[in-house]
Design a protein around this nucleic acid. Structure first.
Length: 653
DNA sequence: AGCACGCCGACT
DNA sequence: GTCGGCGTGCTC
């Protein structure tokens, strides 16, 4: 009997939970098969060939039946690194989903041309140039500690704006992260930096390029065209340590010798994976850190609830900037003024005065909540809703200057008359950004007003006096830093019916603060109590601890884990009973009806029994697949640890 | 997903 | 007697 490897264990690229296990195939004589390569394999039942990845080669199979020979090797490039396979398996188990779905996120589609070019070019020989700098805000010990193998951190990034040699402004935090990556690379280790959106990607890429030469940087950008994505992916496999900077899928980058894993702004919605099995970057990163013993850094201006929980448990160390470049914050809620003058209705006197003074020297930021120009319209005279006379759909303003149109049937209304009072002027309903812009234009007639929102985002503003009205998240960077900022809609942001309202609000406040000069002043209107105290002092601990205690009492995340299951009602009752019989600490909310014969339940369970619950969920899911009747379209869908599901659940009740 | 296997009603 | 309905189960 020969002992040479003749069996390939393959994970199939199939979305079916029934096929989410390894299949053994015999390796035909003369075929060169290494772990990680993509292969074509026959599946007897579904006559068609599928593809898969070789996870390992062995000399014996534990499969009782005869082995079918492997089809073809698609490419000799081992695109599935053993480390990534382990990660995919663990993440899939955690999410009660299948590993192939994770691999779909982790391994970009193959481009033959890109692969040829990469192979012909060969391995880069030069070691990337690294420029390490010391930082004002953190000691050298702290920086080294942040990249120490096996360590885990919540890192508060500094406020303020840095500039590239070309004068491009960018958040100071990007400089700090770049220095961490430089230290990891100098120690011979790779870094993976996962950021929420393309703006952060650009800023961090820029900061990295200033300290690490391009051959040491991999840009993992899902917005790139496929061939470029594949090229960058292959560069991770080249055998040399690199720094990968990218958005959420970059967390799966198959780098060699991972030393540092950074997740920026983990509370940002962009870290929620919209594809099954919906793994959140934060959770993938936690699994990967556990498996590889790299250092893990959750970086941001304000901690998320989940990160704060891990910190308060002692699981994450906290590192904060030493030299606070944080501007002074004045909560104005206690100094409400009664006089009526030309100032915007929402703006207290002290903030108005501060803005007036600051505007003599430079730009002032006004942060508002509503996204975009309030799209719904109402009669300016009587307030009646603007509705389409044809189909009764809501009228909207699309772009600036364009006439109103119906959101349903797209009829244009160049000349509109209110049905109630025959008035001819419409205004946005509610407090849109357009309203704020016009209010400030009236209150400060000599100063230009710049508007930035989701649709029309302004990247940077100059150092000359201007009022910059921006929706939260769309604040332009000011070249010289803002002289002052007004945070207008804090109360509305805080009182949203969303579990993420607090952390989201804190992070947007801190972001606005970070764009203001250290000697500037930030005025926070309307907000009182603990949130106002926290942002004024910059000490979030008491507020976060209180919030955590409350969530523990209410059994809300992140103090417990969540799974939501939607599907046919019969399946839900079965799943609910099987899961809740697992342990007394599990409880089930619902079911809430959702459409024809279907509904949704929410399962709450403690972290300690997480593995058992997700494994059982998977087993129950499989059971319901085989019982599924044809023609019934609503399948069972399981979403694990997505707080957005809780918001939707609350909204549907 | 596909596809085969398998056990009950109306047909040459 | 058989052709074929689609419920159930398997895929190395």
């Amino acid at each position: 009997m020969s002992t040479k490897p003749s069996v390939a264990r393959v994970v199939l690229e199939s979305r079916l939970p029934q096929l989410d296990r390894l299949f053994d195939y015999s390796i035909p004589e003369g075929m060169v098969v290494t772990p990680g390569v993509r292969v074509k394999v026959p599946l007897r039942s579904s006559q068609k060939n599928t593809t898969g990845f070789v996870v390992e080669v062995a000399s014996h199979s534990s499969h009782a039946g005869a082995l079918v020979p492997l089809g073809d090797v698609v490419s000799a490039v081992p695109v599935l690194a053993p480390e990534i396979w382990r990660l995919a398996r663990a993440v899939a188990d955690r999410q009660a989903g299948n590993a192939a779905d994770i691999l779909r996120l982790a391994i970009p589609p193959r481009y033959v041309r890109a692969e040829k070019l990469w192979r012909d070019r060969g391995q880069p020989t030069a070691v990337p140039a690294i420029e390490m700098q010391s930082l004002l805000e953190y000691s050298e010990d702290e920086l080294e500690g942040l990249v120490a193998p096996g360590s885990r951190w919540a890192l508060t990034t500094p406020w303020g704006v840095d500039h590239s040699p070309a004068g491009e402004p960018r958040p100071r935090g990007a400089t700090v992260v770049a220095q961490l990556a430089a230290r990891a690379l100098a120690a011979g280790g790779s870094s993976v930096i996962v950021v929420p959106d393309w703006r952060d990607l650009e800023a961090h890429h820029q900061a990295l390029r200033e300290v690490i030469s391009d051959d040491g940087i991999v840009l993992w950008d899902s917005d790139k065209v496929g061939s470029e994505r594949y090229t960058e992916f292959l560069r991770c496999l080249s055998g040399n340590p690199v720094v990968v900077i990218g958005n959420r899928h970059a967390v799966y980058a198959p780098v060699v010798n991972l030393r540092l894993l950074v997740v920026l702004d983990d509370a940002d919605d962009a870290h929620r994976e919209p594809l099954a099995p919906y793994p959140h970057t934060r959770n993938v990163a936690l699994v990967r850190q556990q498996q590889t013993e790299c250092s893990l850094v959750f970086a941001g201006l304000a901690p998320s609830m989940a990160v704060w929980r891990l910190h308060s448990m002692g699981f994450l160390g906290l590192v904060e900037p030493r030299k606070a470049q944080r501007p002074q914050v004045v909560p104005t809620a206690l100094s409400v003024n009664a006089e009526r003058d030309l100032r915007p209705a929402r703006l207290p006197g002290i903030a108005h005065q501060g803005a007036t003074e600051a505007l003599r020297e430079g730009p002032v930021l006004v942060q508002v909540f509503r996204a975009g120009y309030s799209s719904a319209l109402a009669c300016a005279q009587c307030g009646e809703r603007g509705l389409c006379s044809r189909c009764h759909g809501p009228l909207r303003i699309g772009s600036h200057g364009a006439p109103p149109s119906c959101a349903w049937c797209a009829t244009l209304y160049a000349r509109w008359r209110c049905e109630a009072c025959n008035h001819s002027v419409m205004v946005p309903r509610g407090q849109g950004i357009g309203r704020t812009v016009s209010d400030f234009g009236k209150a400060f007639p000599k100063v230009p007003v710049i508007q930035s929102d989701g649709q029309h985002r302004v990247h940077t503003v100059s150092d000359s006096p201007a009022i910059v009205v921006a929706t939260r998240g769309s604040e332009p960077l000011a070249v010289g830093g803002y002289r002052a900022a007004l945070l207008l809609d804090g109360q509305a942001m805080l009182s949203r019916e969303s579990i993420g309202a607090l952390e989201d609000t804190l992070s947007h406040w801190e972001h606005a603060l970070s764009l203001v000069r250290p000697e500037g002043t930030v005025y926070l209107t309307e907000v009182e109590g603990q949130p106002a105290l926290a942002v004024a002092s910059g000490k979030y601990g008491p507020l976060m601890n209180a919030e955590l205690r409350e969530r523990e009492a209410l059994r809300l995340p992140p103090s417990i884990r969540l799974a939501s299951v939607s599907g046919p009602s019969a399946a839900l009752t079965d799943i609910a009973s099987r899961i809740s019989s697992l342990d007394a600490s599990v409880d089930v909310l619902g079911p809430v009806a959702m459409g024809e014969g279907g509904g949704r339940i929410i399962i709450r369970f403690p972290y300690a029994i997480g593995d058992r619950v997700t494994a059982e969920l998977r087993a129950v899911h499989l059971g319901h697949i085989s019982r599924q009747r044809r023609g019934v379209p609503d399948r069972v869908r399981i979403v694990v640890d997505d707080t957005g599901q809780l918001d939707e659940f609350a909204g549907s009740e």
